[in-house]
Design a protein around this nucleic acid. Structure first.
Length: 217
DNA sequence: AAACACGTCAACCGCTTGCTG
DNA sequence: CCAGCAAGCGGTTGACGTGTT
């Protein structure tokens, strides 16, 4: 598949330059998302389609929220990870403005080290100890769970976020948007019983993933 | 001030999934 | 039904920044 992109053309790798960002952004604005494989030809970018897609999705897309995770986001990630495991895209889909890559990185750097690892994966990196050896037992440290009530509302950052991703739209149409029990609400009583939710969420997630509005098979 | 260790995060890679002809 | 392709996903890598000695 994408092996085609590896054909011995002079595809650039590594960090994106601002001018490359600009080109990609303009390209997507005029042509829309999709057809990533042809982006390099059409835009003149010496980047693979995969690279372009990732760059757009993670950084150039509108409504991307950068910066530190709020306590609520952190808490939500912990909880969702407990329920969903390493399904970063699903988790990110419930954090408006956050990308799966960001959530994944955040988990691996900030949360993972605290002693949480729902599914111990092959973390035998022999060089640096980036992934920390963790007791597989309890994925969540009690401290984070304790402050579930949400506290003050994410300093108003949520308000200008618009849901534009197809997945989020699908989720919304499935009544799965900000009113979802998995997302904090305005009343500071955001709380649910994880265990109770697991079976529900499982089918929920499946449904949401495949879509209930014609998105699925 | 320099060298080293560690943490963070952007980007790549390989695999899987879904769509189309 | 099957093959080929595009897109998506999660794991991993490596560059860079920052802290420590």
């Amino acid at each position: 598949m994408e092996k085609k992109e590896l054909k011995p053309r002079l595809l650039r790798k590594g960090l994106w330059k601002p001018e490359e960002d600009l080109i990609l952004k303009k390209y997507v604005e005029t042509h829309g998302e999709g057809n990533w494989a042809t982006v390099s030809q059409k835009s003149g970018l010496m980047r693979g389609g995969k690279s372009c897609r990732l760059r757009w999705k993670n950084y150039l897309r509108p409504n991307i929220k950068r910066g530190r995770m709020s306590d609520e986001e952190k808490d939500l990630i912990i909880r969702l990870h407990k329920l969903l495991g390493n399904r970063w895209s699903l988790i990110a889909g419930r954090l408006p403005g956050r990308t799966d890559n960001e959530v994944k990185n955040f988990w691996n750097t900030h949360l993972n080290k605290k002693g949480s690892r729902a599914k111990p994966t092959n973390i035998n990196r022999n060089n640096k100890n980036k992934l920390h050896q963790l007791p597989p037992s309890h994925p969540i440290d009690g401290e984070s769970l304790a402050n579930t009530s949400g506290g003050p509302e994410v300093d108003g950052r949520e308000e200008d976020i618009t849901f534009t991703s197809p997945r989020v739209e699908a989720a919304k149409s499935f009544n799965y948007g900000p009113k979802s029990p998995l997302l904090p609400t305005n009343d500071a009583s955001f709380f649910y019983d994880d265990e109770t939710f697991i079976p529900i969420l499982d089918s929920f997630v499946l449904f949401g993933t495949y879509g209930s509005n014609g998105e699925g098979p």
